[in-house]
Nucleic acid binder design. Sequence first.
DNA 1: ATCTTTTCTTGATCTATATCAACCCACGGA
DNA 2: TCCGTGGGTTGATATAGATCAAGAAAAGAT
Lengths: 192, 192
Amino acid sequence: MDALFQGLRDQIETLSKLEEDEWREFKTYWKPLSLEKGKQITKIGQVEDYFYYVYEGVVRGYAFKDGEDISIGFSYKGDYSGAYDSFLTRNPSEWCMETTTEVELARIHHDDLMRMFDKYKSIERWGRLFNAKMLIGMSRRQVESRSYTAEERFDRLMDQSPHLFQLVSQRHIASYLGMTPETLSRLRKKVR
Amino acid sequence: MDALFQGLRDQIETLSKLEEDEWREFKTYWKPLSLEKGKQITKIGQVEDYFYYVYEGVVRGYAFKDGEDISIGFSYKGDYSGAYDSFLTRNPSEWCMETTTEVELARIHHDDLMRMFDKYKSIERWGRLFNAKMLIGMSRRQVESRSYTAEERFDRLMDQSPHLFQLVSQRHIASYLGMTPETLSRLRKKVR
DNA sequence: ATCTTTTCTTGATCTATATCAACCCACGGA
DNA sequence: TCCGTGGGTTGATATAGATCAAGAAAAGAT
C-alpha cells in the first residue's frame, strides 16, 4: 500500500518532480483498488471516468470487431491503463478493460485530475509528458504493425515480451498481433 | 503574414487561451517560412529541431521500408507537422517530411518551445492538450488500419478526404493506406 | 513539338493468412 | 469418475492483396 503509492510517485516523477506538499495533496485523490482475475474494469459505451495506475498484475484492453474480441494492448506493473481515449474525449468508450490476473491498482477520477492540472503546473507538466510518452509508444506500435508480417510481429513479441505468453491466452495474443489463433499456433509450432 | 499568425493563434486557442502578453512573446519565437513544392523539410537520421504549423499547402510525412517510400500522414492548413516523435525524444528521426505543394509554414525551435513551457502555464497546458489531440487522432487511425480491409480503408478516405486525391500522387496515397499502387488503381476503377 | 521519364492501368500469377472443420486436451463442476 | 466447455492444434481450402510484367497516359525536359 505504501509501496503502491511510492511506485506511483516514482513513476510520476520520472516525468515531472513534485514538491512534497503537491504530492501530499495529489496522493489523496488516488484510490487503491484490488481486483481478482477476470474482472471487467471499463465497459464499452460508457465514458471512462478514471485513470489507472497498475501496481501489480496485468490488465488487457480490447475492442469488439463484429462480435470478435480483439486485444488492443496490455498494461503491466508500472504502466498506466484505462480507456484513455474516452477519458480524454469524454465520449463513450469503444473499448473495454479487464484484468487477466489478480491486480492491484490505484485510480484517480477525471474531475480530480483536471483540478490538479489547474492547480499545479508540475502536474500539468506531468500530463503533457505523459501524453507525449503515450504518443511515442503508439507511433512505435503503428510502425510495427505496418512494416512487419505476421511472422515478424510474432518473433518480435517473443523477443520483447516473452512473459506475455505465460500471462494471457493465445487467442488474446493472436488478436493483439492482428492474426487468427490458428496462425499464431502454427507460428509457435515452427519455433519449437 | 498577419493572417498566418492569426491562424496560428486561433489554432492554439482552441486548446488553451493565452493572455495578450503571453501571445506577444510566444509569437516572437515562431518564424514564418515559405517553401516550394517538393522540398525536403526533415531528413531521416537527424534530430527534429522544429515544430511546424501549416498555414497553406500540404506536407507529407514518410518513412522508408526496405527502400520503398511509405507515407505516414499528410498535414494540411491548420495542422501541425514535423517528425514529432524525434522532436519529443531528441533521437534521430526515422522518417522525413516533404512538401507536396507550395507551402507556407511557421515554425518554432525546440529550445524556445521548452522555454515557453517553463515560463507559461497556459502554454504548458496547450502542450498537454495538443499531445492529447495527437494521441486521439493516432489511436483512431490505428483502429482504422486494424479493423478495415483495403477496400474499406479506401472508401473511408474517399469519404473523409476526397481532396487528397487531387493533392498527392496515387502511389503516396496507396502507401498511406497500406496497399500497393496497383491495388489502389483497381479500387478506383471499381468506383468509377 | 518531340523525346524521356515517371505515374497509372490492366492482366496473370503467387502467397500469406483467413476460414472452416475436426479433433485433442485440460480443467472445473456434478 | 465422468462429462462438458473452452482453449489449443492440425489439416484442407479459399481469398485478398502482392508481385511481376507490359502497355498507356501524363508530365517534364530539351
